[in-house]
């Protein structure tokens, strides 16, 4: 099948999901009113607040976060030639957790303020801490990547750094007040709804710059599929390429995690889903493919998390796994059967 129509179809699917995300929610707002609000009608303050300050930001954040995590997962899986690699595997999201843990758990004992109580400034501090934490771990990984040769060695070191960081978080928890731990746990559940207003615009803006950058690495990623020796023989500088891919991938994860918490599963599963849908390893297709599929899946999960009855209380992480796992497992399973039959 031709690949471009599928990409266009995915774009259309995102549009539909975006509309449904705006229309559905615990408060019933007529479609006509929603449209009017989007075009600048502010006559119903409650409705316009719900649409513009809750549903629209949430949908935009979901699109960007889903796209970022998915393409980051694709890059990790290719560079490590490991189907189980994902944004969390190198300890980069653990690094974010550490940053947040330090800020959330230590603030009351060190500075005497409990961040879980101070709202907006606290949120900003959490984002910054998460970015610093994940970038710190990523810098460490990049440094290691330049020292060691094998990808498997690097992967194992990454996983070990992840464990180490988790252990430090565990120790921090042990010494913290109960309400701070609760705030930390809530952050860890993941949510697209936490960001709004200016911070939402900042997040969306940063992602809009970073996502296109991943297109610059498609040729590199295609060559990496062949393995280091073949890739090097075709003129690729392995060490520099590996660093660039980890940097791109790591920064995407760092920023998404900073604003939405550690969102599981999308980064791991979407690349597999895309390979099954497009039946190719060509990153010129897979990069736009994962970006669109990731965005669509995140929108779907965000929608389900807000279904009547859950009232936004359902953590995104539970939904991503509950919705995604069976779908993706079945798609991959069916494709495998086709392969055998050929």
């Amino acid at each position: 099948m031709r690949k471009t129509p599928i990409l266009i179809l995915l774009g259309f699917l995102i549009l539909v999901l975006l509309v449904v995300n705006l229309l559905l929610g615990s408060v019933k707002i007529p479609a006509g009113d929603t449209l009017a609000i989007l075009f600048g009608d502010r006559s119903n303050e409650i409705f316009s607040n719900i649409i513009l300050k809750s549903r629209l930001p949430q949908a935009l954040v979901a699109i960007m976060a889903g796209a970022g995590l998915a393409v980051s997962g694709l890059q990790m899986q290719t560079v490590f030639r490991n189907p189980l690699a994902g944004p969390s595997v190198l300890g980069i999201s653990n690094g974010a957790s550490l940053g947040v843990a330090i800020v959330v758990l230590m603030s009351s004992s060190l500075a005497g303020v409990s961040l879980s109580r101070i709202g907006y400034a606290g949120d900003a501090a959490i984002s910054i801490a998460a970015i610093i934490g994940s970038l710190a771990v990523m810098t460490l990984i990049v440094w290691v990547a330049r020292k060691v040769k094998g990808n498997v060695t690097l992967l194992i070191i990454g996983v070990m750094i992840g464990y180490l960081v988790t252990a430090i978080v565990g120790v921090l928890k042990f010494f913290s007040a109960e309400e701070d731990i609760k705030a930390f746990v809530v952050w860890g559940l993941g949510s697209f709804a936490r960001v709004s207003g200016d911070r939402m615009l900042l997040f969306v803006g940063m992602m809009a710059v970073l996502l296109p950058l991943s297109f610059l690495l498609v040729k590199t990623l295609n060559l990496m599929l062949l393995g280091d020796d073949y890739a090097r023989n075709l003129g690729l500088n392995i060490s520099r390429s590996r660093t660039l891919v980890i940097l791109n991938s790591g920064v995407l994860v760092a920023i998404v995690t900073a604003y939405c918490g550690p969102i599981m599963f999308i980064g791991l599963a979407v690349p597999h889903l895309c390979r099954a849908i497009f039946r190719t390893s060509d990153h010129r297709i897979l990069v736009p493919g994962t970006i669109l599929t990731g965005a669509a899946l995140a929108l779907l999960c965000s929608l389900i998390a807000r279904m009547p009855g859950f009232e936004g209380a359902l953590p995104v992480n539970s939904v991503t796994a509950l919705v995604g796992a069976p779908v993706i497992a079945s798609v991959i399973f069916r494709r495998r059967k086709d392969d055998v039959r050929e």
């Binding site: 030639r81 599929l225 062949l226 393995g227 390979r275 039946r279 190719t280 390893s281």
Partner: peptide, 8 residues
């Protein structure tokens, strides 16, 4: 050694 490539 053969390269481990799927779907190419």
């Amino acid at each position: 050694h053969r390269p481990q490539i799927q779907n190419m």
